[in-house]
């Protein structure tokens, strides 16, 4: 059961109520609803296949509990993650403090994990620009500093959501070309066998 092959482990991090779950919901089911959902029983783990340059990559998206009482355990979650989407609320500057905490944690414990900063609730600014508490360029600079990427999204309108996840998948494909090949079309590997296989030297 539930043996779906997953290529990339993506963890969602962020303070409570910044909208991690909504972001995943929007991406996977293209909806933003408060009413009853029909198809899913849970949005905590989702596997989603995505097309990148003709290859299929399956993202396994791990939602995490944002409450501070589980903070000590967050390390267990991002072990082995290839990408982390660290969310903050554009209209809440305190949520960005937590972002810095997670970035530090990720950099020290999980060096192979790429970091994507994601400002949520962009739609709230539509009518009232003064609600913004976190400057776009400040965060962008910070993202560059930590060699991460930066997106501002709205789960309500869907703005930038697909782009974010698409980028996660693309980065994965570009940075681990061989792994994708082994999984996608193993037959083709016969030509590469010599170079690839010679890593086994025990």
């Amino acid at each position: 059961m539930s043996g779906q092959r997953v290529d990339v482990k993506v963890v969602m991090l962020g303070k409570e109520f910044v909208g991690k779950t909504s972001l995943v919901e929007r991406y996977v089911h293209h909806r933003f609803l408060l009413g009853p959902y029909q198809n899913t029983i849970g949005a905590a783990f989702v596997a989603k296949a995505i097309n990148v340059e003709g290859r299929v990559v399956t993202l396994g998206i791990w939602d995490t509990a944002g409450s501070e009482r589980y903070e000590a355990m967050s390390r267990i979650y991002y072990r082995g993650a290839k990408a982390a989407i660290v969310c903050y609320d554009i209209t809440d500057s305190s949520s960005f403090q937590r972002v810095k905490f997670w970035v530090k944690e990720l950099q020290s414990c999980e060096q192979h994990c790429r970091i994507y900063l994601c400002g949520t609730k962009l739609d709230l600014l539509e009518n009232d620009r003064s609600k913004r508490q976190l400057d776009f360029h400040d965060v962008r600079d910070y993202a560059e500093e930590i060699k991460g990427r930066h997106y501002e999204t709205s789960s309500k309108t869907g703005q930038n959501v697909d782009e974010l996840f698409q980028k996660v998948a693309e980065d994965y494909v570009h940075f681990t070309p061989f792994q994708v090949m082994t999984e996608e079309n193993g037959v083709d590997l016969s030509q590469k066998k010599e170079t690839y296989f010679s890593c086994c030297h025990h």
Partner: peptide, 30 residues
Amino acid sequence: LACITRCSKHIFNAIKITKNEPASADDFLP
């Protein structure tokens, strides 16, 4: 692992019936 997964699915169902919406990690872990 399959036992854990089954257990989790039941938990998701329980949350779904109570809240009438799919559970997020904030609901699931507690």
